[in-house]
Amino acid sequence: MIIELDSLEIIFDSGKEHFKVLDIPHWQVAEGGQVAIFGPSGSGKSTFLHTLAGLLPISSGKLSVCGQALEGMSEANRDQFRAQYVGYIYQNFNLLQGFTALENVLLGMTFSPRKSDPEEAKRLLDEVGLSHRLKYHPSQMSSGEQQRVAVARALANRPKLLLADEPTASLHPVNKEDVLRILLDICNRHGCTLVLVTHEREVIGLFENTVTFLEFNRVYQGTVGG
C-alpha cells in the first residue's frame, strides 16, 4: 500500500478553539491507484491532502505514505519526504511568475535529492504538450497551459504519489477534461499513484475509484485502487 492510515486525527488548536478537522479510522490506497476524493467545500478534502503531503502534522493516529511513517516525523524530515516522494498540483497552479515554464519545472527538481536535469524537464513539458512554450512565462500562457506546466512540475521529482487539489477548478470547461486526461495518462505512464480532490461531479466520472467526504469532519473507511 502506498497510503495506509489508522485512527488518523487532525485537530486544529488555536489556543481558544480546539476542533477536529479529520477523523479517519482506517484507509489505504494501493500503489498505482487513481482516486478521486469528492466532497463539498469545507469538508476537509484539502486538509486531508495536505496531511498526506506532510504539510500538516498529525495530531494522533498512524499514517504511512510511500513507506514513510509521517506520525512523529519532524517538519524538516517531512519537507525532505515531500521533496522525494510527493508531487503536488494546486487549484491556482502556483507557478512562479518570474520563471519560465522550463524553469518552473526545474524548480520541482531543485529541492529533491535528484539533480536538476533540463533535458528531463523539457521531456516532461513535451509530454504535456508544451514543448513550444519552454521559455514562456506564466503570464504569457492560458490557464490550461499553466496547469499543464504545473502537472509537469509535479512530476519533476519523479514522485511515487501525485496529489492534485482541485486541479480543474480554475480552468475553462473546454480545458478541464483535457488537463484531467493528461493527468491520468501521465500518471499511468509514470506508474504514479494519483489522489485528486474535487467538488466537481463531472471530474469524478473519469475515475474508477471515488471516495466521498460527505461533510465536515465525516470519515470514510475502506480500501481503494490497485
Binding site: A53, L55, E75, A76, D79, Q80, R82, A83, Q84, Y88, N94, L96, G98, L107, G108, T110, F111, S112, N157
Partner: peptide, 16 residues
C-alpha cells in the same frame, strides 16, 4: 511570500 511558500511546498526546508 507565495513564492517562498511554494518552495516550502516543493520540499525546501525553513532553513533553506
Amino acid at each position: 511570500r507565495r513564492d517562498l511558500a511554494l518552495f516550502r511546498a516543493l520540499g525546501a526546508t525553513r532553513k533553506t
